[in-house]
Design a protein around this nucleic acid. Sequence first.
DNA 1: CCGTATCCGATCCGATACTG
DNA 2: CAGTATCGGATCGGATACGG
Lengths: 131, 131
Amino acid sequence: MKIRDDYTCPLEIVHDIIKGKWKTIILYQMKDGPKGLAELEREIEGINQKMLLEQLRELISFGLVEKKSFEGYPLRVEYSITERRGRKMIEAINIMQMVGVDYMLENGMTDALIEKEVLSAEEVERLMNER
Amino acid sequence: MKIRDDYTCPLEIVHDIIKGKWKTIILYQMKDGPKGLAELEREIEGINQKMLLEQLRELISFGLVEKKSFEGYPLRVEYSITERRGRKMIEAINIMQMVGVDYMLENGMTDALIEKEVLSAEEVERLMNER
DNA sequence: CCGTATCCGATCCGATACTG
DNA sequence: CAGTATCGGATCGGATACGG
């Protein structure tokens, strides 16, 4: 990943930070605590190891994720959100999650939300009534 | 832009909604009121008309932007943030803007922030002290 | 379980030319 | 001022194979 030095505005940097299909999802998955690599790969539907490592490396280089390695076997590595910038980005991702949910509610994708356990049937019900 | 129907989570949709180099910047530029096309093109450094129209079309199709055309000459069109989903996304973008600023402060890009009038010299000073 | 390397099609995006 | 069409290089992302 090339780090440029001619950014014209902060949002251009943020785009570099979270661009790609997986970055926000990876961050969101780590919001409740450190995760191992295999764990992330299991929990994120459709990702493969190459993409996961690639994106994690970039997130680390931008100071949103920290990596901690443990010696000995079995090998263990923990990836986690950084306290300052990572946490802040999670705030934004939480809002974006709401926007995505809103879109899904509007477009009759409620079943998917319940199946994937993003929301309970009751929560979907409540949100639909609020709209 | 292809609209898929097999999204596995809300954030995957959001990624489709704001992906690309320009979407967040375009939205941010409209946060204080409707904008014409030429106006946006002038204010967003580095964008060209083709990209602008392309991205606006996608933002409209996802319900984040509205377009209003006026009859007669000179031609006039207004693009604006939608009240529900667009406004919500602006909340997230505001936070992302802060993350970008934080990154710039940490990496000695303060001059750029002041030059582009993102922040005043005083605000930069204050934020640097907070860190 | 963790990480690296390569290949290759899909897409993104910038330049440019043209219309109402 | 607003919008469309096309072309080609750069980048992205999925599959797959291999090494610590």
